[in-house]
Design a protein around this nucleic acid. Structure first.
Lengths: 140, 140
DNA sequence: ATGGGTGCAAAAGTTTTGCATTCCC
DNA sequence: GGGAATGCAAAACTTTTGCACCCAT
């Protein structure tokens, strides 16, 4: 049986010489339980109930560490703030322009590939694909 | 012979009942001359030389109007600020993770398409595709 | 003349940072 | 014990907004 995601993240922290604190555990749980592509503030509020002293700065520190370690993906969906996705394998997103809900598309868009002559000598590392539209509830 | 881009934009302003001011003309010229996928602040500084009293608020007002009218595309490239592209037809971008230079890829990625069963009932309006990598100068 | 535009300053919102205290290892 | 993490507050940044004055139509 696989290790729970929260324990996996704790393990990654230790491997990087970082410490496992109750705050970080709570943030990990929030990321994997109940929150859907949350912003930093979403995570903060979700965790605040269980630990009222939690600081927003701690949330930012923790998610920035996770992003640096490759355990969390930062999404920039044109909202003036970042949202975060614990599903780190490259996949497209579908965003509702009405309610701002975000769906993961579970497919490799491997047809999305630059031709050699389009790359201008760049070494391409990754590709973000975001579809924007209206979900069934937001089609007026 | 085609109308100059700046004059085209002035015409669009008039069609929408908006006024053509020297400030807006300068901003239009900056968008089409010399600036490459600029941020609001980039535009502000480029225009400041010719018109020292120019306000950053005017830049924001103008580019927001252009975006609303569909004459300018707002790009969110994970920098904590928006950049703008006067090339409004849908096309991918290639961003250097080192120097943050942005290249337009002149191709329709029409293979980037959701399957009906992936759309969850959404009406899809558009798709943003951004490649991230390192340009020749930034490969260490 | 009139309604929109401009410039300035303040405000709002997100993210980062400095620092003293706390706590994991 | 030591070095990192936390919480708080302040700061940094981008973007928006309120308002008095100005200007394109």
């Amino acid at each position: 049986m696989a290790m729970r995601p929260v324990e996996q993240l704790c393990e990654v922290l230790r491997e990087h010489g970082l410490k496992v604190t109750p705050q970080r555990r709570l943030i990990f749980e929030a990321l994997y339980d109940g929150l859907d592509h949350p912003s930093a503030d979403d995570i903060y509020h979700a965790v605040k109930g269980a630990m009222p002293d939690m600081s927003l700065a701690t949330v930012y520190h923790t998610i920035n560490d996770l992003v640096t370690m490759g355990e969390l993906v930062e999404l920039d969906l044109g909202e003036g703030k970042s949202r975060y996705d614990p599903l780190t394998s490259e996949h497209p997103h579908l965003v509702c322009l009405g309610c701002r809900k975000v769906e993961d598309i579970a497919r490799d868009l491997d047809c999305v590939q630059l031709l050699p002559e389009e790359m201008n000598g760049y070494q391409v590392e990754r590709c973000d694909v975001v579809f924007y539209g209206r979900c069934p509830d937001c089609q007026s």
